[in-house]
Simulated assay, not measured.
Amino acid sequence: MKIAILGATGTAGRATTRAAHEAGHEVIALSRATGIDLHTGEGLVDALRGADAVIDTSNPFPTDAGTSLVETFHDATTRVVEACLQAGVARLVHLSICNIDDEAFDQFDYYLAKRAQEHVLASVEGLQCVVVRSAQWMEFALNPGAVTQDEEQVRVEDWLIQPIAVDEVAHVLVEAAAGPARNRQIAGPEQVRLPDLARALLAATGDQRPVLAVQPSFPALAHGVLLAPREAELLGPDVASWANSQTPAV
């Protein structure tokens, strides 16, 4: 089948593009680099024509600092839905995040924005919409959203997470596009504190800098709100196996 992937140059998008190719699908890789702008919808309908399914891995952050994140995400997803309908796409698979409905995130703009996207999808008619909610990725180990580093040390917010390798996320997204139309929640098999995940990655890649755990900027992240929900599928490698699979630093 022909699968269009939005956000194809991002971490999840690149992995999903690989997974779709490996599964034998024809892939349309779409991003700003290919002229697709989710803030305006320019070029989107034409790009999606002929696609059987669309996988949306995009993160359409505002280009203007004064623009609402929630409105931007909501409007981008609305444009994607409208483009799918106009282009005759049968199914839209949307990558979301586990636990976004938890009241702990009621003041957390990014999770509110993800809620807004799912709200758009819940009201769609004439298009199969499948939501895949993922826990944080292993690849988040050194993400600047929670990590600051210099030549001497790495400071990591003390989140409690249950991370999944992004390659596993990608395989599930492709399955969701080509297989049964059902929503899924996925996470990794092991709970770990983010500083320990960072330590495992640094050790496996030969980086000897010490890792210092610091208090999260959002306190609830330290207390289990990011762990896999009870109904989640637990997939992929544990922390040690994933870290050891990473390319050592040169």
Rank of each mutant, 00 (worst) to 15 (best):
177 A>P: 00
180 P>E: 13
173 L>S: 08
133 R>Q: 13
196 D>C: 05
168 E>Q: 14
115 R>L: 08
34 T>F: 10
153 Q>N: 07
55 I>R: 09
16 T>W: 02
202 L>Y: 04
90 A>R: 14
55 I>M: 12
8 A>C: 08
32 R>D: 02
10 G>W: 00
83 A>Y: 09
84 C>L: 09
208 Q>E: 15
208 Q>W: 12
103 E>R: 15
147 V>H: 03
56 D>H: 11
93 V>H: 06
68 S>C: 13
144 P>S: 09
111 Y>T: 12
62 P>K: 02
47 A>K: 10
171 H>P: 04
157 E>H: 09
72 T>E: 13
4 A>I: 11
109 D>R: 02
192 V>W: 04
142 L>S: 09
235 L>I: 00
230 R>Q: 14
20 A>R: 07
212 L>E: 15
16 T>C: 02
11 T>H: 05
71 E>H: 13
80 V>M: 05
241 S>P: 00
238 D>Y: 00
152 E>W: 05
136 Q>T: 14
37 D>G: 01
92 L>W: 09
35 G>P: 03
10 G>Y: 00
31 S>H: 02
106 D>M: 10
66 G>H: 12
91 R>F: 11
225 V>M: 10
40 T>G: 04
80 V>F: 06
79 R>P: 01
31 S>G: 05
243 A>S: 12
33 A>E: 12
72 T>Y: 08
88 G>M: 08
64 D>S: 12
22 E>L: 13
195 P>K: 13
132 V>R: 03
70 V>H: 11
95 L>Y: 09
105 F>Q: 09
32 R>M: 04
144 P>F: 10
134 S>D: 07
148 T>Y: 01
53 A>M: 05
101 D>V: 09
47 A>T: 10
76 A>D: 11
156 V>C: 09
156 V>T: 11
174 V>C: 06
7 G>W: 01
228 A>H: 02
178 A>N: 05
148 T>S: 13
213 A>C: 08
87 A>R: 00
121 L>H: 05
163 P>I: 02
175 E>L: 03
16 T>G: 01
106 D>I: 01
56 D>P: 06
234 L>K: 01
53 A>Q: 04
175 E>D: 15
218 F>K: 03
210 P>K: 14
63 T>M: 15
18 R>L: 11
216 P>K: 11
118 E>Y: 04
177 A>C: 03
109 D>I: 00
148 T>I: 12
35 G>D: 07
220 A>P: 13
4 A>W: 09
203 A>V: 07
5 I>W: 05
230 R>A: 15
86 Q>F: 03
54 V>P: 03
99 N>A: 03
203 A>C: 01
31 S>K: 11
175 E>C: 00
237 P>I: 06
234 L>T: 02
169 V>P: 04
113 A>V: 06
15 A>V: 07
2 K>G: 03
158 D>P: 00
174 V>R: 02
106 D>R: 14
208 Q>H: 14
215 Q>V: 08
40 T>Q: 02
162 Q>K: 01
7 G>A: 08
185 Q>H: 13
8 A>I: 12
200 A>L: 04
81 V>N: 10
128 Q>W: 10
77 T>S: 12
158 D>A: 15
143 N>R: 08
211 V>D: 06
38 L>S: 10
50 G>A: 07
